[in-house]
């Protein structure tokens, strides 16, 4: 019989029996199983890297680093290069970070610095959380039928009036960088807002009180005290939001146009690594799949570096405020 202190105590028997050998056995089996599960996360990532690497190996051997600087993707001529995709990935994510990051930090301030009644605050927080819950593919659909028709007149006007300016050098003919970046901005906003809001909440209350005590106005406190103090946490939010944007797939595959051009124009169609995978993979032959595996390895590397950087900043922030509350 298994020794169970709970049952024993209820029946009023002695509690002093030591665990039986079978208890020790079960305990150590259970703990080694838990250890294996924790190990499985490490093994999973290692296996992913290994598997993608070995699948991409023929392509890596054949194209080398020229894969990263090449600009054509042509299956018939066996020519593969992902520079336009890397450019599109970074450009669209940076644009999204500019819009979504700015909005996200503003919202974090709005949610944490006591601008409204607690109930309205909960409402806004729920809205931001739900923004993150909407599936990517639904944003894509919304982008096609709502956002693109909505921004097209504005894009047309900008092109007509400021066409000499490189950013507006082409007209928005349908899908393109601008709608893709806008949808991306909406999608990373909750990430940035949540991590930044957390950074604001970590600031000890006395910091704020001290600033108010010196006669600062609400916004002087926010801009001169709270923002600098939370800056590393906000930076972590921005970097992690950027990482999210880099890997986002479906909405981009539906909105960016999937054209392998390098253009600075906001309204030109472009392509990203993730949407290249989404749009090309299902119909690809063996050679092209090897090239796509190489492309996914590049994507993995970029997002890994960005995410590790973001997490490092975040952990630095957490340590900074530990024990100061």
């Amino acid at each position: 019989m298994v020794h169970d202190p709970f049952k024993d105590s209820a029946s009023g028997k002695t509690l002093s029996a030591p665990p039986s050998p079978s208890d020790y056995m079960k305990d150590s089996v259970f703990r080694s199983f838990a250890y294996l599960c924790a190990l499985s996360i490490i093994l999973l990532l290692a296996y992913i890297v290994f598997e993608l690497g070995s699948q991409a190996l023929p392509a890596i051997k054949e194209h080398g680093l020229g894969f990263i600087t090449g600009t054509t993707w042509d299956t018939n001529q066996n020519e593969f290069g992902v520079l336009p995709e890397i450019w599109g990935t970074l450009y669209s994510s940076l644009l999204a970070l500019l819009i979504g990051g700015g909005l996200g930090v503003a919202i974090a301030i709005f949610l944490t610095q006591g601008f409204m009644h607690a109930k309205i605050e909960v409402m806004f927080r729920t809205i931001i959380e739900l923004l993150a819950a909407i599936p990517s593919v639904v944003y894509g659909l919304w982008g096609i039928y709502v956002l693109i028709p909505l921004i097209r007149p504005a894009a047309h006007w900008l092109h007509e009036t400021f066409g000499w300016f490189p950013l507006f050098s082409t007209d928005l003919s349908g899908p393109g960088l601008a709608p893709a970046a806008l949808v991306l901005a909406i999608m990373i906003l909750p990430t940035v807002a949540a991590i930044s809001a957390d950074a604001f909440r970590r600031i000890p209350y006395k910091v704020k009180e001290a600033a108010y005590g010196m006669g600062a106005t609400k916004w002087e406190v926010i801009l001169k005290v709270m923002l600098p103090t939370a800056s590393s946490g906000i930076l972590a939010g921005l970097v992690l939001g950027f990482g999210r944007a880099l890997g986002e797939t479906m909405a981009l595959a539906m909105l960016i146009g999937n054209v392998n051009d390098i253009s600075v124009s906001l309204f030109a169609p472009a392509n990203t690594l993730a949407s290249l995978l989404a749009s090309t993979f299902p119909e690809a032959g063996e050679i092209e799949i090897q090239a796509l595996m190489y492309a996914s390895l590049v994507l993995l590397l970029i997002t890994f570096v960005v995410n590790v950087a973001g997490l490092a900043v975040q952990q630095y922030t957490m340590r900074k405020f530990e024990g100061k509350k």
Partner: peptide, 23 residues
């Protein structure tokens, strides 16, 4: 393991597809 789990939450979801396709 904790750190890699955090890294994996920011993992592009399409790469999970590519990985499982290969495996």
């Amino acid at each position: 393991s904790r750190f890699l789990a955090k890294v994996l939450t920011g993992f592009p979801s399409i790469l999970a597809g590519v990985f499982v396709y290969a495996v």
